[in-house]
Design a protein around this nucleic acid. Structure first.
Lengths: 311, 311
DNA sequence: TATTCCGATAGTGAC
DNA sequence: GTCACTATCGGAATGAG
């Protein structure tokens, strides 16, 4: 394996996430079932296997390992004496091959992709640049002042959006009305005599629902976690970890700066959102204003989610 | 019984409060054991019986009936169609002879005295004037503009303070260092050959601790309960019903206007205390400032109470 | 400032 | 804006048939 190769965390048991304890060597095991996405870096990913159509089963494999591997959760930011919960992402950047908490999706010399430990939506990934010169910089500054870096990020994020979109299709494709053409054709293809490999299927199938439109990406204006991270998540905001007003606002106001908004111009007001935690909560789908009534919003989001996934 | 007589709620079982259900007739029963206080109105009271010294027992009879007779709690402010919890004191004024919830201490044509349903101190009584023309007036206005009424109230309150002081002695006299001379002499008196009746004892005994100094009285600047009521309570603030900051502040700031401060002069700032619920909580005994830390104050009050009662 | 219930808000400590 | 825990603060309903 050359340093520039992307290593993939693969799942032999598609419906159960890999835990850190299952990985014995330096890198995650690879299986013949892993079919990578076609990019310049040719990374392969664990979602590929998960994307296999599973009629009659509504698996949620990505959200099932929320509490697994908790004993292996040890920040251990070696060097700093005092523990700081805000350094929690450092372990993934430093030792992605250890696959901490079974959360690593893929990694190479430049990036680590993990599932957010506390996802705020059906799909919620983090892209973590590994460059030590950049990882502790402020994301708005770095992404606005470093064109080369921004270009790399944008390229990588485009690919992650597709990854996330495929995961949405895996989760909700069968209950989606507009995805029916794809799902029906896929079923026919897979029950046929010679099913093509998974990375060739989509080009042979009708488009169905454009799930990538449901994926958002960006960075928080004032991140709580110290290491630079870019969010890639579905916009449904349907998650047991969405527990507080600021959770919702941080992804549904200008506190989130979308990747496509960069570079910000110098002196942009986006650098100073002001008292954003006091802003009203507005439904991302129907624009109803719930002011500060989080519980009411939460119930409403459940309903919107059901309608959304069936679109 | 003439209308001007004061009717006393008497306890045959001193350690257990009478409940409303035990009273069959129009008035509370009287027993030979009731020895009244010597006032112009000659009211007798339930505390007299409770004041009997009970060595080795630390009874708290006054606080034991908190939840009794709940079924008989019916505001029923006849005339107004809608229920209003702020009219809750009306029932005591209207039907004191029913002894609602077993809470009536004494009553006559002009006043009803009850135990506060949610006492904020070891002893907490309410004096309720019955005059329909006055009971719904604002206490600060009425007590400042009506000298005759104020005089009656002051007279009555003086007596209630003595009643409350005796109750403090009953509860804590035996654990009080400075009350020892009284308690020892009392014990000797009662074990002697011819113990005098209870209303003659104190004049024959050494003074002991001046419990009346521990009693405060006054009205809230902005009462929540609609019917005019004057608080008479011990200053210890030791009670399971003291649950919130405003409970404490309402008796330990200028939000409480002491009876002896009346009449207020017209335009007095006391009419407008301002944002009093945001004021700091300061220990009534040692003046330590607990700011808005209610739990910390509560623990501290427990300690102060133990020291206070042993004074 | 009646209570009670529920929920929103705020501060803290975290290996 | 990391979470989880505790506590403080804030609004709304409140009985009874």
């Amino acid at each position: 394996m050359t340093p520039k190769d992307t290593v993939i965390r693969a799942d032999d048991a598609p419906d159960e996430a890999i835990t850190a304890g299952e990985i014995k060597g330096d890198v995650a095991p690879q299986t013949p079932a892993n079919h990578g996405l076609a990019t310049t870096q040719k990374p392969r990913n664990a979602f590929a296997e998960l994307m296999k159509p599973k009629p009659k089963m509504n698996t949620q494999s990505l959200n099932e390992n929320t509490n697994k591997g908790k004993t292996s959760s040890r920040p251990s930011s070696s060097g700093s004496k005092s523990f700081d919960a805000r350094d929690g992402l450092g372990i993934y950047i430093k030792y992605p091959e250890r696959n901490p908490e079974g959360r690593v999706i893929e990694y190479d010399d430049d990036f680590v992709v993990i599932q957010d430990k506390y996802p705020k939506a059906s799909v919620h990934l983090l892209l973590l640049p590994r460059d030590p010169k950049l990882t502790l910089e402020h994301p708005l500054v770095t992404l606005s002042n470093n064109p080369d870096f921004l270009a790399k990020i944008k390229s990588r994020i485009e690919r992650l959006k597709l990854l996330a979109a495929r995961e949405l299709r895996r989760k909700y494709g069968l209950s989606s009305a507009s995805d029916a053409p794809y799902q029906l054709a896929l079923e026919e293809m897979m029950s046929g005599p010679d099913p093509p490999p998974s990375d060739e299927r989509d080009s042979l199938l009708p488009p169905g629902r454009d799930w990538s439109r449901e994926i958002i990406s960006g960075v928080h204006t004032h991140p709580s976690m110290n290491h630079l991270h870019i969010h890639v998540l579905s916009r449904d905001m349907h998650s047991p970890w969405l527990k507080k007003k600021n959770h919702y606002l941080s992804f549904n106001t200008t506190f989130l700066v979308g990747l496509d908004e960069f570079p910000l111009e110098e002196g942009s007001p986006r650098f100073h959102p002001g008292d954003w935690t006091s802003w009203d909560m507005v439904c991302w789908r129907c624009r109803e204003n719930f002011r500060n009534k989080f519980k009411a919003l939460q119930e409403h989001l459940d309903e919107e989610f059901e309608a959304w996934r069936k679109e």
